[in-house]
Nucleic acid binder design. Sequence first.
DNA 1: TCGCGTAAGTGAACAACATTAACGAAGCGG
DNA 2: CCGCTTCGTTAATGTTGTTCACTTACGCGA
Lengths: 248, 248
Amino acid sequence: MLFTYAIPTIVYRVPDVNPVLRRRDRVRAATQSELTSAARELLVTGGTEAVTVRSIASALGMTAPAIYRYFDSREALLDALIDALYDELAAELISVRDAAGSLAGRFLETSRAFRRWALAHRAEFGLLFGAPIPGVGELGDASADRGQRFGALWLELFIELAARDREVVRWRRPIPDRLRAQVTDYVESIGGVVDTDTALLFLACWERLYGAVCTEVFGHLAFALDDAEELFEDQLLDVAERLGIGPP
Amino acid sequence: MLFTYAIPTIVYRVPDVNPVLRRRDRVRAATQSELTSAARELLVTGGTEAVTVRSIASALGMTAPAIYRYFDSREALLDALIDALYDELAAELISVRDAAGSLAGRFLETSRAFRRWALAHRAEFGLLFGAPIPGVGELGDASADRGQRFGALWLELFIELAARDREVVRWRRPIPDRLRAQVTDYVESIGGVVDTDTALLFLACWERLYGAVCTEVFGHLAFALDDAEELFEDQLLDVAERLGIGPP
DNA sequence: TCGCGTAAGTGAACAACATTAACGAAGCGG
DNA sequence: CCGCTTCGTTAATGTTGTTCACTTACGCGA
């Protein structure tokens, strides 16, 4: 199955395995996938420290140097894992989104699913969205692209929102020139598929939602709360209100 | 100089070096401090990977095993660094806060100073507030204590706010029972120096502010913005509005 | 179906890592 | 001044990522 979206230039594509590959290439791809899965397992059970090349290899019953037939380095393997995790998360959000009926429901459920995934996969979330480890998931084309594609997943919702109600999109404070200029540049960089006001609203809301999830997952509410679900829900309702989405 | 606060049970104390130490203990403490500083320097220039026991030692002109006269392990050293960084950040915020005049100014400037410090010290921020690395800065007493003490720095402002205007503190939505219970427990755990409503407001605002800083510092707005200062400012003004703090 | 090329996997090796043990050289307190 | 504690060293251990040289065996083209 191949998911695509209305936005022409910034489509998040959950890649499918191409079946017209030679057998050799297919088993090779399967091994690569098994390796990243093993790495993930180690990450989840033992943290970043535990995901060593030797452990990954022995999980597949082979020795460490064999890994280098499949990945240039440990970091390249982790990079592939990051890609796979982005795909998994995106697929999850997309399926939740498409199962929801109304536009409001799609926004709320996607947001909740994001938090749910993050909490259910803390270690993976740390890898994707935590403090950038120098070298792995670095700010190359791949990294910027991931951000773009993942952002697009939400951006689409804001495009719909803006199409439905222009009033919602209007900023309530004067927009500083530099901020406006930056957002305009961003809009241009994604092919002008959205107007500046909508993009700005999207960025502000993304900052709130991601920030809330980040705070909770990284344990910086743990000094007070065991479970911050209802606090997140409150933040989410704030955002929804701002977006003109009433309680369903 | 010793900073103390009105809150009796949760005082953030920026510790001073006790001068009534024997000479030996003084040079020992100085060496420990030099070691954490060297570790910090390595962290800043080369990331977590670069902060090896050997490098730290050679920065002070000694060999790796000598480190173990001062710290039980590499992790213990990093833990001490984390403590020092918390103290530095807290001292910075306190000095900024105490330089501001009004209550509104204290809140706004403290928040801005938090963001400023985070951006000026990205690597350090990642160590303090990023994805928890298993083993270092672990959820022991020390970690919980750090969270408490650091939170108290802001909590104090909310206590003042609540004292000035009870209306501001009132929640705009029905508070879910479980959330209320958790916050009540938290309030109790810090000695009941604040009421539940105020504590809840504090937690919600802390989530927003920390979340915004986290998002920016970890580069998850970089796909769109080079500098998110004005976006942060907008979020901050939102919060300030919620707190009944008009533009100064 | 047969052979050959290429890819997969191995063991040995290396440098760098955290850490421990055993030992020498100071320096301070009595 | 003696003796003990503390500091720092060298040597050594086990583990890390990674490379090299080599062998095995699979799959593709004929």
